[in-house]
């Protein structure tokens, strides 16, 4: 069993959004991103020098990170900021599954 994802930073920012950064046990996988809830939009800018991924669930959160790297960032929109940490961890667990 892989270790749990770990919250490494939590910070309030612009307009009341809350940023949670999480260190996954392994590098972020594209197939795991593709399996996330279909209500979000996934964009992988894979022609950049490093493949930057963003998965946007409007009004809920924006997930960003580099495919293959362990650090991912959740920017939790205003209405969900109070549950930022648990939401981010739950999605991070889905990514690790």
């Amino acid at each position: 069993m892989s270790p749990d994802p770990e919250v490494v930073l939590m910070r309030d920012c612009l307009g009341g959004e809350r940023v949670v950064e999480i260190e996954l046990a392994d590098g972020l996988r594209r197939d795991a991103l593709e399996r996330l809830d279909g209500s979000g939009t996934l964009m992988v800018l894979d022609s950049l020098p490093k493949p930057f991924a963003r998965y946007d669930r409007p009004g809920f959160f924006l997930l960003t990170g580099i495919v293959g790297e362990r650090r991912v960032r959740f920017t939790m929109r205003l209405a969900h900021r109070d549950r930022a940490e648990e939401t981010a961890l739950a999605v991070a667990r889905e990514l690790a599954a």
Partner: peptide
């Protein structure tokens, strides 16, 4: 692209430090 995502891309993909926000 949200300014924060641009800041993150510049930082993590290109190693260029800029500042997003207000």
């Amino acid at each position: 692209q949200e300014p924060r995502a641009v800041e993150e891309m510049l930082d993590r993909v290109f190693d260029v430090t800029v500042r997003a926000g207000l």
